[in-house]
Nucleic acid binder design. Sequence first.
DNA 1: ATCACTAATGACCGGACGGTAACTAAAATG
DNA 2: CATTTTAGTTACCGTCCGGTCATTAGTGAT
Lengths: 255, 255
Amino acid sequence: MADDNGSDAGVVRAPKGVRSASPQRKRRRLDPEDREREIVDGAVAFFAEVGFDGGLRDLAKRLGITHQNLFRYFPTKEALIDRVYEEVYLGRWQVEWEVLLADRTIALEQRLTQFYRAYLQAIFRYDWVRIFVFAGLKGVGITQRYLELVQARVVEPLARELRVTTGLPDTAEVPLLPEETEMAWGLHGELFYLAVRRWVYEMKVPDDLDTVVRVAVVRFLAGAPSAMRLLHEGTLRAPAPRSGRRARPARRNPR
Amino acid sequence: MADDNGSDAGVVRAPKGVRSASPQRKRRRLDPEDREREIVDGAVAFFAEVGFDGGLRDLAKRLGITHQNLFRYFPTKEALIDRVYEEVYLGRWQVEWEVLLADRTIALEQRLTQFYRAYLQAIFRYDWVRIFVFAGLKGVGITQRYLELVQARVVEPLARELRVTTGLPDTAEVPLLPEETEMAWGLHGELFYLAVRRWVYEMKVPDDLDTVVRVAVVRFLAGAPSAMRLLHEGTLRAPAPRSGRRARPARRNPR
DNA sequence: ATCACTAATGACCGGACGGTAACTAAAATG
DNA sequence: CATTTTAGTTACCGTCCGGTCATTAGTGAT
């Protein structure tokens, strides 16, 4: 059954000598490094589009190679996918971001604005957002670890800054409430959700992300003191009733 | 969620001949309505967990039937998936929510708090969130249409309310800026992102969602006026070309 | 020109997929 | 009871999947 029929010779021999028959007809032999680069880039784009259930044959077709050739470079599909994770997540986190956020010589508003502008510049992309969501749904550990990084390096530091700017006790005295951390997640979440609306749900979003970031940061910081007081009005006895607007709600914090 | 394992549906029957195999469930014959109900419920849970690429044989195994039997109720897999969409999205949108949001006899803060508490009660669920995200990645139109509904019935009305509460011109005079709509998306986005963190990335989130909603709404409304003024400072008076942020009542000065 | 090296490929495998057809048996009807 | 109806099953089809192996052909060194 294997190669029984000599009548095969299915490949048309006639135009064989002439090598310029069609644009990509011929076998292209690359340095392994170059080929691997092409495969990884192609895989990132491919899996971002169709998800990790996409077939290797389809990926190979896009790359202009056969799917078997992929196995020369990655022993299994899983290995290729792991490489895609590396490619997308490793090295895109800038430690300078953490430095910037911690630099109290700059106003918090400026720090947050600059950070989120830089952060969005790094992640507000088709590949990054979709692979991040695909991986999350699949339950890949790397996404959880990434979010724990965000929480430890961005969200919780921000929540601690709010303690300072609102004149509440330091977190050394009173640990962060889950609701305070959640509040800081709010800023992060609304900006990430913007990326999801754009790259997952294909909605129209404003072109000028810098303005969106600025507005979000301003609103966040302008609103945070009220929310912090609300959260802490039970834990400490500094009522500090605000005269403006509506009178202070008679009801305390539920539970 | 109907029943787990009702292997014996009222019929007590002596094992017939050779067919001992006690664990083997006998053929269970249900009314088509009941069976269809089981299939749909099972399909919602199944596809929410593994995504729409999950195999029908696996789904059938969970249901205790053979995969061929699914075709008796749904002509194709696609038809079953469409039914899942219906099941999850249709009828879960409450028109009372829109009425509540538009009721100006209630303070905006109360309206938003009540609405988002009710909204989260409806959508903050494993099935809903994950299927919504899976469907978005797949590019299913129903999710886009759903988000357009949210924008038209929740987000833009909220943005218009902000015009009123901040004393800015009505939207009849000055149409909503994209950045204003985006601002209103911010509140929605941070709460939806909370659901994504919980049900997609399996992170710990506060147990008391009511408090989270209340804090988010208070912060949103307290911060919105500053952000609105920022957005409209060019609209209302002379452009003031450069300089990011200066001639404004910067009430809150960090440090 | 040719040789060695090795990218790249063609052929193939077992299994899982969505889907079809024929058959089996549990309930409804008389 | 016998008969009819039809929910549910066994058996199977063509296709595609990840992965293996022997073979082919592009390229630098000689």
